[in-house]
Amino acid sequence: MQQQDAGAPRASLRLARPGLSASGWVGAAIILVYVVVALTGAAWAPYGATAILTGSPFEGASLQHPFGTDNLGRDVFSRVVLGTRSVLTMTFAATLLAVAVGGLIGIVFGYLRNWVDEIGMRIIDILISIPTLVLALLIISAVGNSLWLVVLTVAFLFAPRVARVARAATLTVVTNDYVAAALARGESTLSICLREILPNITGVMLVEFAIRCAFAIIFIGSLGFLGFGAPPPTPEWGLMINEARANATNSLWPVLAPATAMAVLVIGINLFADGLSRLIDRPGQRSAEAK
């Protein structure tokens, strides 16, 4: 049961190719474009994210409004562009937090392999067995839906899953001589975990980070779609899709534009993660359940 979440690591018969694959580079390029848009979008987006009546409501695509306008006449293109920043920030913050906390817990448990590990992993198993979305809805209903609470919730839900992967990876390196040597030098547990083990599983953790990012984008989007994400008028893509849905039969642009933006970013991250995992000889490391 434990192994599945790590995607059943197997020894590959193929040799790891040197350098990132072509599709990996495509993924990296896509991510780069999004990061640039997020950083510079505010400077060149034609309208503000909350500027109403930039045209009449529900206009189709035109030169003025490349993706049309929404129910309040806001420019969909500008909102998608400006939404990039909040989406990327939320995603990276949530994932970084999850990988940092989950990763540390996983490494420590994997290194200790004593009763702490035993009990800790049981708790993690239990947390994982509760469906993510259900737990997220419960937590967000309880504590409210500000931007940062959504980030914390997503981090909390992802951390146990990351911990499992980190622990599994730690188990493969913990028996190495350099760990024993460090122990002999009298280094503390934390220092061994951070200085000896972490550098040797960096690749796995990077791939994990990339995959979790992709999940986080879809997950945050789903929360926004169910009305549990960031509050309006935040130009969050899931929320935009939800708001535009009632009129989808009449004008599909306000749905399609944020959906495409989301999908392309997720594709980019997936391609990059794939390339990365091939690079470090861990093909096909995947877990579907966080989706």
Partner: peptide
């Protein structure tokens, strides 16, 4: 504001502007 009554979100968003 809230989605509880249709029009709330739009009214609040417009009022803000």
């Amino acid at each position: 504001t809230s989605e509880t009554t249709p029009g709330f979100i739009e009214m609040a968003t417009l009022y803000q502007a």
